[in-house]
């Protein structure tokens, strides 16, 4: 881990949107949106993340749904549950983890990761205040669909993997 300051989303916290951070970013609560950083991203064991992650090093110990670009290394812990397409310089999936998705690992895959990240990035949700007296309560204009029972769904090949099939 680097010496930069940490960005921590607490265990009882929920965040929706785009997060850009340098250094270490730890997700202990629930995160939805996208994370782009030049350092490390760590989804803790109780963390829930539905996001596109692009960082140098990514460590998943909790639950994650979405594409991941780890320019140097992706590490999935034994209790990790991950669904999504992955591009990484190196990958390590521990025994006991659950991982379903398409993988491109290696320097070439990382070099071609830019088009994938641009194609998979979802537009940020728009916030509408429902009741001005309760500013904490908001609704999301383009609410993304819940992941549901994703383990039983078939894999869908992304456009950037077409060249590797056959």
């Amino acid at each position: 881990m680097s010496d930069h300051a940490e960005t921590v989303l607490g265990p009882e916290s929920v965040f929706k949107g785009e997060l850009r951070a340098t250094g270490v970013c730890r997700i202990l609560g629930a995160f939805e949106g996208s994370i782009r950083g030049a350092g490390d991203v760590h989804v803790a064991s109780n963390g829930i993340c539905a996001a596109t992650i692009e960082a140098d090093r990514v460590v998943i110990d909790g639950s994650h749904t979405g594409d991941i670009v780890a320019r140097e290394r992706l590490q999935l812990g034994p209790k990790a549950q991950v669904r999504g397409d992955v591009v990484a310089g190196a990958i390590s999936v521990a025994e006991g983890a659950t991982f379903l998705g398409r993988v491109g690992v290696g320097p070439e895959a990382v070099a071609q990761a830019r088009p994938m990240a641009a194609a998979s990035s979802q537009p940020l949700p728009e916030i509408k205040i429902v009741n001005p007296k309760t500013p904490g309560k908001v609704e999301w204009a383009n609410e993304p669909a819940p992941p549901g029972d994703w383990m039983s769904q078939p894999l869908k090949a992304p456009t950037w993997m077409k060249g590797s099939e056959g």
Binding site: E72, A90, I91, V93, A94, T98, R102, V103, G104
Partner: peptide, 22 residues
């Protein structure tokens, strides 16, 4: 790849769908 665990070292390459599960 369908396996109990997966490890790709830096410099190695892997292309394909992966299912890691007990």
């Amino acid at each position: 790849v369908e396996a109990a665990s997966l490890h790709v070292e830096a410099g190695g390459s892997l292309y394909g769908a992966v299912k890691i599960a007990a």
